[in-house]
Protein backbone atom coordinates (compact mmCIF):
# COMPACT_ATOMS: atom_id res chain seq x y z
CA UNK A 1 0.00 0.00 0.00
CA UNK A 2 1.44 3.34 -1.03
CA UNK A 3 1.21 6.40 1.12
CA UNK A 4 -1.23 7.96 -1.24
CA UNK A 5 -3.48 4.97 -1.06
CA UNK A 6 -3.18 4.86 2.65
CA UNK A 7 -4.44 8.41 3.08
CA UNK A 8 -7.07 8.41 0.29
CA UNK A 9 -10.66 8.54 1.43
CA UNK A 10 -12.86 5.71 0.25
CA UNK A 11 -15.95 7.19 -1.37
CA UNK A 12 -19.31 6.10 -0.01
CA UNK A 13 -21.37 4.56 -2.74
CA UNK A 14 -25.07 4.99 -2.89
CA UNK A 15 -27.56 2.17 -2.69
CA UNK A 16 -30.26 2.77 -5.24
CA UNK A 17 -33.59 1.80 -3.76
CA UNK A 18 -37.15 2.31 -4.96
CA UNK A 19 -39.63 4.97 -3.89
CA UNK A 20 -43.03 3.78 -2.65
CA UNK A 21 -45.45 5.67 -0.46
CA UNK A 22 -42.87 8.28 0.49
CA UNK A 23 -40.37 5.67 1.65
CA UNK A 24 -37.31 4.13 0.05
CA UNK A 25 -37.67 0.38 0.38
CA UNK A 26 -35.68 -2.28 -1.42
CA UNK A 27 -37.74 -4.59 -3.57
CA UNK A 28 -39.70 -7.02 -1.46
CA UNK A 29 -38.47 -9.75 -3.79
CA UNK A 30 -34.85 -9.30 -2.80
CA UNK A 31 -33.89 -9.42 -6.47
CA UNK A 32 -31.50 -7.02 -8.21
CA UNK A 33 -29.87 -6.42 -11.53
CA UNK A 34 -26.44 -4.95 -12.01
CA UNK A 35 -26.13 -1.70 -13.91
CA UNK A 36 -22.88 -1.60 -15.81
CA UNK A 37 -20.98 1.19 -17.42
CA UNK A 38 -19.80 0.99 -21.01
CA UNK A 39 -16.68 -0.89 -19.95
CA UNK A 40 -18.72 -3.49 -18.18
CA UNK A 41 -17.93 -2.36 -14.66
CA UNK A 42 -20.77 -2.48 -12.21
CA UNK A 43 -22.08 0.96 -11.34
CA UNK A 44 -24.77 -0.13 -8.96
CA UNK A 45 -27.07 -2.98 -8.08
CA UNK A 46 -30.54 -1.89 -9.06
CA UNK A 47 -33.69 -3.21 -7.43
CA UNK A 48 -35.51 -5.59 -9.73
CA UNK A 49 -39.01 -4.59 -8.72
CA UNK A 50 -41.72 -7.22 -8.55
CA UNK A 51 -45.47 -7.33 -9.12
CA UNK A 52 -45.91 -7.07 -5.38
CA UNK A 53 -43.83 -3.92 -5.29
CA UNK A 54 -46.08 -2.57 -7.99
CA UNK A 55 -49.17 -3.58 -6.05
CA UNK A 56 -47.84 -1.78 -2.97
CA UNK A 57 -47.09 1.28 -5.05
CA UNK A 58 -50.64 1.34 -6.45
CA UNK A 59 -52.04 1.11 -2.93
CA UNK A 60 -49.86 4.06 -1.95
CA UNK A 61 -50.87 6.02 -5.03
CA UNK A 62 -54.56 5.31 -4.45
CA UNK A 63 -54.45 6.42 -0.85
CA UNK A 64 -52.62 9.60 -1.81
CA UNK A 65 -55.11 10.45 -4.54
CA UNK A 66 -57.87 11.97 -2.42
CA UNK A 67 -55.55 14.46 -0.77
CA UNK A 68 -53.46 15.33 -3.80
CA UNK A 69 -56.41 15.76 -6.16
CA UNK A 70 -58.07 18.03 -3.61
CA UNK A 71 -54.94 20.13 -3.06
CA UNK A 72 -55.31 23.59 -4.49
CA UNK A 73 -53.84 24.31 -7.87
CA UNK A 74 -51.66 26.93 -6.22
CA UNK A 75 -50.19 24.38 -3.82
CA UNK A 76 -49.53 21.89 -6.60
CA UNK A 77 -47.77 24.60 -8.56
CA UNK A 78 -45.70 25.54 -5.54
CA UNK A 79 -44.64 21.95 -5.03
CA UNK A 80 -43.69 21.47 -8.65
CA UNK A 81 -41.65 24.63 -8.50
CA UNK A 82 -39.99 23.36 -5.34
CA UNK A 83 -39.05 20.15 -7.14
CA UNK A 84 -37.42 22.23 -9.82
CA UNK A 85 -35.46 24.18 -7.20
CA UNK A 86 -34.26 21.01 -5.55
CA UNK A 87 -33.24 19.55 -8.89
CA UNK A 88 -31.37 22.67 -9.87
CA UNK A 89 -29.44 22.47 -6.60
CA UNK A 90 -28.34 18.95 -7.42
CA UNK A 91 -27.55 19.73 -11.02
CA UNK A 92 -24.00 18.36 -10.88
CA UNK A 93 -25.08 15.10 -9.32
CA UNK A 94 -27.66 14.42 -12.02
CA UNK A 95 -25.26 15.40 -14.76
CA UNK A 96 -22.70 13.03 -13.32
CA UNK A 97 -25.22 10.22 -13.11
CA UNK A 98 -26.21 10.69 -16.71
CA UNK A 99 -22.56 10.68 -17.73
CA UNK A 100 -22.03 7.56 -15.71
CA UNK A 101 -24.83 5.95 -17.69
CA UNK A 102 -23.17 6.85 -20.95
CA UNK A 103 -24.52 10.28 -21.86
CA UNK A 104 -22.00 12.79 -23.13
CA UNK A 105 -21.16 15.53 -20.67
CA UNK A 106 -22.61 18.42 -22.65
CA UNK A 107 -25.71 16.49 -23.51
CA UNK A 108 -26.11 15.42 -19.92
CA UNK A 109 -25.90 18.97 -18.71
CA UNK A 110 -28.47 20.03 -21.27
CA UNK A 111 -30.79 17.25 -20.20
CA UNK A 112 -30.68 18.36 -16.59
CA UNK A 113 -31.26 21.98 -17.66
CA UNK A 114 -34.25 20.89 -19.71
CA UNK A 115 -35.58 18.79 -16.85
CA UNK A 116 -35.57 21.75 -14.48
CA UNK A 117 -37.17 23.92 -17.11
CA UNK A 118 -39.84 21.33 -17.81
CA UNK A 119 -40.79 21.25 -14.16
CA UNK A 120 -41.01 25.03 -14.12
CA UNK A 121 -43.13 24.89 -17.28
CA UNK A 122 -45.69 22.58 -15.69
CA UNK A 123 -45.53 24.37 -12.32
CA UNK A 124 -46.76 27.36 -14.24
CA UNK A 125 -49.60 25.42 -15.79
CA UNK A 126 -51.00 24.26 -12.45
CA UNK A 127 -53.56 27.01 -12.11
CA UNK A 128 -54.09 27.67 -15.81
CA UNK A 129 -54.86 24.49 -17.69
CA UNK A 130 -58.26 24.39 -15.98
CA UNK A 131 -59.01 27.84 -17.36
CA UNK A 132 -57.96 26.81 -20.85
CA UNK A 133 -59.96 23.58 -20.97
CA UNK A 134 -63.04 24.35 -18.85
CA UNK A 135 -66.22 25.71 -20.27
CA UNK A 136 -69.51 27.18 -19.31
CA UNK A 137 -72.07 25.60 -21.58
CA UNK A 138 -75.04 27.70 -22.68
CA UNK A 139 -77.74 25.07 -22.44
CA UNK A 140 -81.23 25.63 -23.77
CA UNK A 141 -82.95 25.60 -20.38
CA UNK A 142 -82.86 27.35 -17.05
CA UNK A 143 -79.69 25.67 -15.85
CA UNK A 144 -76.16 26.73 -15.09
CA UNK A 145 -73.98 24.16 -16.80
CA UNK A 146 -70.23 23.96 -16.68
CA UNK A 147 -67.50 21.48 -17.50
CA UNK A 148 -64.26 21.24 -15.61
CA UNK A 149 -61.32 18.88 -15.65
CA UNK A 150 -60.69 16.43 -12.85
CA UNK A 151 -57.71 14.09 -12.60
CA UNK A 152 -58.26 10.61 -13.99
CA UNK A 153 -56.86 8.94 -10.86
CA UNK A 154 -53.93 6.60 -10.49
CA UNK A 155 -51.72 6.64 -13.57
CA UNK A 156 -49.17 3.96 -14.31
CA UNK A 157 -46.25 4.97 -16.49
CA UNK A 158 -43.66 3.04 -18.39
CA UNK A 159 -40.96 5.69 -18.60
CA UNK A 160 -38.96 6.04 -21.81
CA UNK A 161 -35.78 4.05 -21.90
CA UNK A 162 -33.56 6.50 -23.70
CA UNK A 163 -34.15 9.56 -21.58
CA UNK A 164 -33.49 8.64 -17.97
CA UNK A 165 -34.33 11.94 -16.35
CA UNK A 166 -36.05 14.26 -18.82
CA UNK A 167 -38.26 11.50 -20.20
CA UNK A 168 -39.39 10.55 -16.74
CA UNK A 169 -40.10 14.10 -15.67
CA UNK A 170 -41.92 14.87 -18.93
CA UNK A 171 -44.45 12.20 -18.06
CA UNK A 172 -44.66 12.62 -14.31
CA UNK A 173 -44.97 16.40 -14.21
CA UNK A 174 -48.10 16.86 -16.36
CA UNK A 175 -49.88 13.99 -14.63
CA UNK A 176 -49.07 15.15 -11.12
CA UNK A 177 -49.69 18.82 -11.74
CA UNK A 178 -53.17 17.75 -12.79
CA UNK A 179 -53.80 16.07 -9.46
CA UNK A 180 -53.16 12.46 -10.47
CA UNK A 181 -50.96 10.15 -8.51
CA UNK A 182 -48.51 7.94 -10.36
CA UNK A 183 -46.57 4.77 -10.33
CA UNK A 184 -43.58 4.92 -12.68
CA UNK A 185 -41.38 2.19 -13.96
CA UNK A 186 -38.02 3.88 -14.53
CA UNK A 187 -35.88 3.50 -17.61
CA UNK A 188 -34.36 0.07 -17.49
CA UNK A 189 -31.04 1.05 -19.02
CA UNK A 190 -30.77 4.39 -17.21
CA UNK A 191 -32.44 3.98 -13.81
CA UNK A 192 -30.08 6.03 -11.65
CA UNK A 193 -31.58 9.46 -12.18
CA UNK A 194 -35.07 8.14 -11.48
CA UNK A 195 -34.12 7.10 -7.98
CA UNK A 196 -32.15 10.26 -7.34
CA UNK A 197 -35.14 12.17 -8.60
CA UNK A 198 -37.25 10.37 -5.99
CA UNK A 199 -34.94 11.92 -3.40
CA UNK A 200 -35.59 15.29 -4.94
CA UNK A 201 -39.35 14.69 -4.76
CA UNK A 202 -38.96 13.64 -1.17
CA UNK A 203 -37.05 16.79 -0.33
CA UNK A 204 -39.59 18.97 -2.10
CA UNK A 205 -42.45 18.05 0.22
CA UNK A 206 -44.32 16.01 -2.36
CA UNK A 207 -46.85 14.11 -0.23
CA UNK A 208 -46.14 10.42 0.22
CA UNK A 209 -47.60 8.23 -2.50
CA UNK A 210 -48.18 10.97 -5.07
CA UNK A 211 -45.25 9.73 -7.12
CA UNK A 212 -43.97 6.21 -6.75
CA UNK A 213 -40.93 5.05 -8.69
CA UNK A 214 -39.97 1.47 -9.32
CA UNK A 215 -37.00 0.02 -11.11
CA UNK A 216 -36.96 -3.30 -12.85
CA UNK A 217 -37.49 -5.12 -16.11
CA UNK A 218 -40.08 -3.64 -18.43
CA UNK A 219 -40.70 -6.95 -20.06
CA UNK A 220 -41.62 -8.44 -16.71
CA UNK A 221 -43.71 -5.58 -15.33
CA UNK A 222 -45.49 -4.09 -18.33
CA UNK A 223 -48.35 -6.55 -17.98
CA UNK A 224 -48.79 -5.61 -14.34
CA UNK A 225 -48.82 -1.91 -15.16
CA UNK A 226 -51.41 -2.43 -17.87
CA UNK A 227 -53.73 -4.85 -16.12
CA UNK A 228 -54.07 -3.63 -12.52
CA UNK A 229 -57.77 -2.97 -11.91
CA UNK A 230 -57.16 0.00 -9.61
CA UNK A 231 -55.13 1.92 -12.15
CA UNK A 232 -57.13 4.41 -14.20
CA UNK A 233 -54.71 5.25 -17.00
CA UNK A 234 -51.50 3.96 -18.46
CA UNK A 235 -48.82 5.85 -20.34
CA UNK A 236 -46.28 4.03 -22.44
CA UNK A 237 -43.40 5.49 -24.37
CA UNK A 238 -41.55 2.63 -25.98
CA UNK A 239 -42.07 -0.71 -27.43
CA UNK A 240 -43.12 -2.20 -30.68
CA UNK A 241 -46.60 -2.84 -31.98
CA UNK A 242 -46.88 -6.05 -29.98
CA UNK A 243 -46.13 -4.31 -26.70
CA UNK A 244 -48.62 -1.58 -27.51
CA UNK A 245 -51.18 -4.19 -28.42
CA UNK A 246 -50.80 -6.16 -25.22
CA UNK A 247 -50.93 -2.98 -23.15
CA UNK A 248 -54.17 -1.98 -24.84
CA UNK A 249 -55.75 -5.38 -24.46
CA UNK A 250 -54.93 -5.59 -20.78
CA UNK A 251 -55.92 -2.00 -20.17
CA UNK A 252 -59.36 -2.68 -21.61
CA UNK A 253 -60.22 -4.93 -18.69
CA UNK A 254 -61.18 -1.87 -16.63
CA UNK A 255 -61.38 0.63 -19.49
CA UNK A 256 -58.10 2.33 -18.65
CA UNK A 257 -57.22 5.39 -20.62
CA UNK A 258 -54.28 4.35 -22.77
CA UNK A 259 -51.86 7.10 -23.68
CA UNK A 260 -49.12 6.43 -26.17
CA UNK A 261 -46.09 8.72 -26.10
CA UNK A 262 -44.09 6.63 -28.50
CA UNK A 263 -41.73 8.64 -30.73
CA UNK A 264 -41.86 11.72 -28.53
CA UNK A 265 -38.70 13.82 -28.80
CA UNK A 266 -38.22 14.53 -25.13
CA UNK A 267 -35.66 17.25 -25.58
CA UNK A 268 -37.86 19.30 -27.86
CA UNK A 269 -40.55 21.82 -27.10
CA UNK A 270 -43.11 19.56 -28.70
CA UNK A 271 -42.72 17.25 -25.69
CA UNK A 272 -44.47 19.72 -23.45
CA UNK A 273 -47.94 21.22 -23.67
CA UNK A 274 -51.11 21.54 -21.64
CA UNK A 275 -52.49 18.75 -23.82
CA UNK A 276 -50.13 16.41 -21.96
CA UNK A 277 -51.93 17.50 -18.80
CA UNK A 278 -55.29 16.97 -20.46
CA UNK A 279 -54.34 13.40 -21.38
CA UNK A 280 -54.89 12.31 -17.79
CA UNK A 281 -57.92 14.45 -17.05
CA UNK A 282 -61.60 13.64 -17.13
CA UNK A 283 -64.20 16.21 -18.11
CA UNK A 284 -66.94 16.56 -15.53
CA UNK A 285 -70.10 18.41 -16.47
CA UNK A 286 -72.37 19.77 -13.77
CA UNK A 287 -75.93 20.99 -14.15
CA UNK A 288 -77.73 23.21 -11.70
CA UNK A 289 -81.07 24.95 -11.97
CA UNK A 290 -81.25 28.72 -11.99
CA UNK A 291 -84.27 29.65 -9.94
CA UNK A 292 -85.48 31.64 -6.99
Amino acid sequence: MSMAEATARVPVEKTYKMYIGGKFPRTESGRYFPLEDQKGAVIANICRGSRKDFRNAVVAARSAFAGWSAATAYLRGQILYRIAEMLEGRHDQFTAELVLQGVGKRKAKKEVDASVDRLIYYAGWSDKYQQVFSSVNPVNSSHFNFSVLEPTGVVSMLAPDDSGLLGLISNVAPAMVGGNTCVVLASESMPLCAISFAEVLHAADVPAGVVNILTGFHEELTTQFASHMDVNAIIYCDGDVDVAKSVQIEAAENMKRVISRVDTKWAEESAQSPYFVQDTQETKTTWHPIGG
Binding site: S142, H143, P289, I290, G291, G292
Partner: peptide, 8 residues
Protein backbone atom coordinates in the same frame (compact mmCIF):
# COMPACT_ATOMS: atom_id res chain seq x y z
CA UNK B 1 -89.14 24.55 -3.14
CA UNK B 2 -87.07 24.43 -6.29
CA UNK B 3 -88.51 26.79 -8.84
CA UNK B 4 -87.06 25.15 -11.94
CA UNK B 5 -88.25 21.73 -10.84
CA UNK B 6 -91.73 23.12 -10.25
CA UNK B 7 -91.78 24.73 -13.68
CA UNK B 8 -90.71 21.49 -15.32
Amino acid sequence: VDEVGVNE
